[in-house]
């Protein structure tokens, strides 16, 4: 694989972390789809009652928490542009 043509090849720590967070945010919907669909494909009847409800809401809660953590951190401004109000 060739190196990216523009921009620095290596990033400082904060920017690097942010890139990886963005990667994770891209993966999140994929993971959500897999978690929600595959169990029902594999064993629909076992998940139809109380077990299904517990499992479904556990997964749902997990997604909400993961999404919350990711998007909160992504929503934060980069540390380099933070000290704006100190003018």
């Amino acid at each position: 694989m060739s190196l990216p043509p523009e921009g620095p090849i290596f990033l400082e720590r904060a920017a690097y972390r942010r890139r990886r967070l963005q990667d994770a945010a891209r993966l999140l919907p994929m993971a959500t789809i897999v978690l929600l669909l595959v169990p029902v494909w594999l064993m629909p009847s076992a998940l139809s009652g109380a077990l299904g409800m517990v499992g479904l809401f556990a997964v749902w809660l997990l997604i909400v928490i993961a999404s919350g953590l990711l998007h909160r951190r992504l929503g934060r401004p980069l540390p380099t542009e933070a000290p704006k109000d100190e003018l």
């Binding site: 945010a25 891209r26 999140l28 959500t32 789809i33 929600l36 997604i63 993961a66 992504l74």
Partner: peptide, 13 residues
């Protein structure tokens, strides 16, 4: 669940 998936991907979608 459908909206949950879409919102989870809101960062790039």
């Amino acid at each position: 669940l459908g909206p949950t998936i879409v919102l989870a991907g809101s960062w790039w979608g």
